[in-house]
């Protein structure tokens, strides 16, 4: 912000209160506060519990505690420590969340960094996703790169990406409440795919590695495929691609079980 910009009014709720939205500067809620209509703010900070009835757009949103957004949210940088729920869609540059974030609609993000649980009702688009925890995506999870360390049951209808790595997370006492660690997904399609603890109907990619704890009905690969550890793969098929297939390699931990 430059000082030449028109100074917008700041809003502060200490204790308990409700304000109308509108175009405002910095908004701080300490305690419990609600914003009763659409709001455009420079920065929104919730310490405690805050809710917004309308759409919110802001440069930054920080939620320490609980944030409830009943409309759509557009924000350059969103940080959540605790719980945030958004009923409609979320458009965000960088989302950093520790705790739970659930979104009723779709998500379009540049970067997502997660420690905890991300729930998305619709599709989720991101250039990068880096997560310790779990996600539940109702539609397509379309990302450049996905790095997930699993700490709980995760699922998505479909995953489409350039690179995906799913690993078993290290044991952290706080996450022990979740018993089953697995990513359940119908289809994964991407270029470089490396999986652990994933249950999928189909996995399609250039280079596919299926590791410990995986159950996959069908793998289709164009360059390389390897099965590691106790992975169960119904069938693995090589698909010819137009691109050069000179460096193709097939390695399996033990015998390849076809049918």
């Amino acid at each position: 912000m430059t000082t030449s910009e028109k100074k917008l009014g700041d809003v502060r709720i200490n204790g308990d209160g409700a304000v109308a939205g509108g175009t405002v500067g910095n908004v701080v809620i300490n305690g419990a506060g609600s914003i009763t209509s659409d709001m455009e703010a420079n920065a929104l900070r919730i310490n405690g519990a805050g809710s917004a009835d309308g759409d919110v757009s802001a440069k930054t949103i920080v939620v320490n505690g609980q944030g409830t957004f009943r409309g759509a949210v557009h924000v350059e940088e969103m940080t959540v420590n605790g719980d945030a729920s958004i009923n409609a869609g979320l458009g965000v540059g960088t989302l950093k969340a520790t705790g739970n974030v659930s979104i009723g609609g779709g998500v379009a993000a540049h970067d997502i960094k997660l420690k905890g649980l991300l729930r998305v009702g619709g599709d989720c688009d991101a250039e990068t996703f880096d997560g310790d925890g779990a996600f539940e995506i109702g539609g397509l999870f379309n990302a450049g790169t996905i790095d997930l360390r699993l700490y709980g049951p995760s699922k998505a209808r479909e995953i489409g990406c350039e690179r995906i790595t799913v690993r078993n997370g290290k044991k952290i006492p706080w996450f022990w409440v979740w018993t089953e660690k697995a990513l359940k997904v119908d289809t994964i399609e991407g270029d470089d795919i490396s999986l652990e603890y994933t249950k999928a109907r189909v996995v399609r990619g250039k280079a596919v590695t299926v590791g410990d704890g995986c159950v996959v009905d069908l793998v289709e690969y164009s360059h390389s495929y390897s099965r590691v550890g106790d992975a169960q793969v119904g069938e693995a098929r090589k698909i010819d691609s137009e691109e050069a297939t000179t460096d193709e390699t097939v390695s399996t931990g033990d015998e390849l079980d076809t049918e």
Binding site: E189, G190, D191, K206, S222, S241
Partner: peptide, 8 residues
């Protein structure tokens, strides 16, 4: 002659 990654 494109890849899944490109398409997505």
């Amino acid at each position: 002659g494109i890849s899944y990654g490109q398409l997505y």
